[in-house]
């Protein structure tokens, strides 16, 4: 069973719909026990970093999530679900993230419009099974005001005023800043790659 983590703010419905379209079954997970029994976890995030961490804490989902990471359960973070992997975010000073990746999520600065809403291209940095069959330079749909700085774990990056992490892998954890469930054929390919891991 694939668990789609529901902390009370993410767009769980459209992720469930996309998984169903790909012929797999998934369930909304908002209880600690749901994560324990899951074979894979997808974490779609949306909205505010602080509200997300609070939602996870209130639902007592933080420790089962860490246990799942420790057990090597495949995990895919989407949008705010990628940002959650960092230590902190400028969006919510003082709130701790999951801290899987060092560093802090930052707000876009400069002449570009914020939020970054729309289709930007992926630059694939290394061969990765998440992007198997996805052509270099593919457009995917983004919708965010904050971004994760590029680290060695970034397997895909995107340019929007500055270069940021669009795809990350660390062991069995994957995360994407774009919305695969809203990125047409390319997005469905990324989701299906994750489901087939």
């Amino acid at each position: 069973m694939i668990a789609v983590l529901d902390y009370g703010g993410g767009n769980v419905g459209s992720v469930l719909k996309a998984i169903e379209y790909l012929g797999k079954s998934a369930q909304k997970a908002d209880q600690p026990a749901d994560l324990g029994s899951a074979e894979k976890i997808i974490f779609p995030g949306q909205g505010h970093f602080g509200a997300m961490m609070k939602g996870l804490e209130e639902r007592k989902l933080l420790s089962p999530l860490r246990e799942a990471f420790a057990a090597g359960k495949p995990f895919l973070g989407i949008c705010l679900g990628l940002q959650a992997l960092y230590e902190s975010s400028e969006e919510a000073p003082g709130v701790a993230g999951l801290g899987i990746l060092p560093g802090s999520v930052a707000r876009f600065q400069g002449i570009f419009k914020v939020p970054h809403i729309g289709w930007s291209q992926l630059e694939l940095r290394s061969e990765n099974q998440l992007f198997h069959g996805v052509p270099e330079g593919s457009f995917v749909y983004f919708c965010h005001s904050y971004y994760g700085p590029v680290r060695q774990e970034a397997c895909a990056v995107t340019e929007y005023g500055q270069t940021f992490s669009a795809g990350i892998q660390k062991e069995n954890l994957w995360a994407v800043q774009f919305h695969p469930e809203k990125s047409g054929e390319v997005g469905l390919r990324v989701l299906s790659n994750f489901l087939n891991i």
Partner: peptide, 8 residues
């Protein structure tokens, strides 16, 4: 409309 649509 939403059922089979994977764009915003």
């Amino acid at each position: 409309v939403a059922r089979r649509l994977f764009i915003p």
